[in-house]
Amino acid sequence: MIASVRRVISVCTLGAALAACGTVEAPGGGRTAVPSTPARHPAAPPTLAAGPAGLTPVFASGSRTRGKTVALTFDADMTADQGPRAAEGERFDNPQLIATLRALKVPATVFMTGRWAEEYPVQARGIGRDPLFEVANHSYSHYAFTADCYGLPTLDEDRMRADVDRAFKAFRRAGVRNAKPYFRFPGGCYDRRALRALSGSGVTAVQWDVVGGDAFATDADAVARQVLEGVRPGSVVVLHCTRSAAPTTERAIRTVVPELRRQGYRFVKVSELIGASAGTS
Rank of each mutant, 00 (worst) to 15 (best):
P57I: 07
A86S: 14
A3I: 15
Y265F: 15
E250Y: 08
R40C: 11
A16W: 13
P247C: 10
G234F: 01
H138F: 03
K269F: 13
G212L: 01
K105G: 09
R266K: 14
R64I: 11
A215R: 14
V122A: 15
G67I: 04
V268H: 02
P121N: 12
L48T: 05
V164L: 09
R85G: 00
A103W: 12
I2H: 15
P95F: 05
T47P: 04
S63F: 06
G200T: 07
E25S: 15
Y265W: 15
P35C: 10
A245I: 06
P45T: 06
G114Y: 00
S277L: 08
A179T: 13
G275F: 13
A162G: 04
H41I: 15
A147V: 00
V34T: 09
L260H: 01
A108E: 03
R66W: 04
P153A: 05
P45W: 13
V206W: 14
A205V: 01
A26N: 07
P45F: 14
D209W: 06
V176G: 01
A276E: 12
V206S: 13
V237I: 14
W208A: 04
G202V: 11
D221I: 11
Y265V: 06
A205C: 10
Y182P: 03
A33P: 04
D130V: 13
L18R: 10
T204A: 02
P131I: 08
T23Q: 12
K105Q: 14
P131C: 09
G62P: 00
G114L: 01
A252S: 12
V206R: 09
V268A: 01
M78W: 03
F183N: 00
F111G: 00
G264T: 12
A99C: 09
G188P: 00
L239Q: 07
A136G: 14
Y140A: 06
V24C: 06
S201L: 05
F59R: 03
S61E: 14
L273N: 04
R7C: 09
A16C: 07
A179M: 11
D191M: 05
T23H: 14
V135Q: 02
R193K: 15
H240L: 09
I2N: 14
S281R: 14
R251A: 15
A39I: 15
R7V: 10
A136P: 03
C241R: 03
